[in-house]
Amino acid sequence: MAPDITDLPHPDRTDLRLTDVLFALSDPERLAIVRQLADGPLEMAQCHLSDPSTPKSTKSHLMKVLREAGVIRNETLGRGRRLSLRQDDLEARFPGLIGSVLGASVDR
């Protein structure tokens, strides 16, 4: 049976690279998305950016960078997408990193 084309590839826990994760978290908009997901999974449509006029394609690209780095999981949910923070995987690979990033002041 052919794989569902709506399934997006996600790196395995063992394939997560610190440089990719840090790059993904270095952008303020991507970091804002991660902060929103820290409280639990959200539908992609519920994640908001600081500029509501940001094109949908830009929002999709931000999600792609986070997914490919292994920071978030992006899965099909009906006709939409469900996003979740891969906190357990990140903690297992890089102990304390995601907690430190999320605990840091937004103003820094």
Rank of each mutant, 00 (worst) to 15 (best):
G96M: 02
R35T: 09
K56V: 14
D51P: 13
K59N: 04
L22F: 10
K56L: 12
D39P: 02
T58H: 00
A69I: 00
R73A: 11
G40F: 00
T14I: 11
M63Q: 06
I33K: 03
E68S: 03
D88T: 14
G99Q: 10
E75S: 12
P52T: 09
E91S: 13
S53I: 15
V34Q: 05
R81N: 04
P9T: 11
G80L: 05
D15I: 01
R13C: 14
P41T: 03
T14N: 13
E75A: 09
A38Q: 06
T6C: 12
D27Q: 07
M1S: 15
G96N: 03
T6D: 12
D88G: 09
A38G: 04
E68T: 00
L85I: 03
A92H: 10
L8P: 13
V106S: 12
E91I: 12
R67W: 00
T54F: 09
L85T: 00
D15Y: 06
A92G: 11
H10Y: 06
M63L: 14
H10G: 13
T54Y: 06
R30Y: 04
G78E: 02
L49P: 09
S100T: 13
D4L: 08
R81T: 05
G103Y: 01
D107K: 12
D27M: 02
T6A: 14
E75D: 14
R17N: 06
V106W: 14
P52H: 01
F94H: 03
R30I: 02
I33L: 06
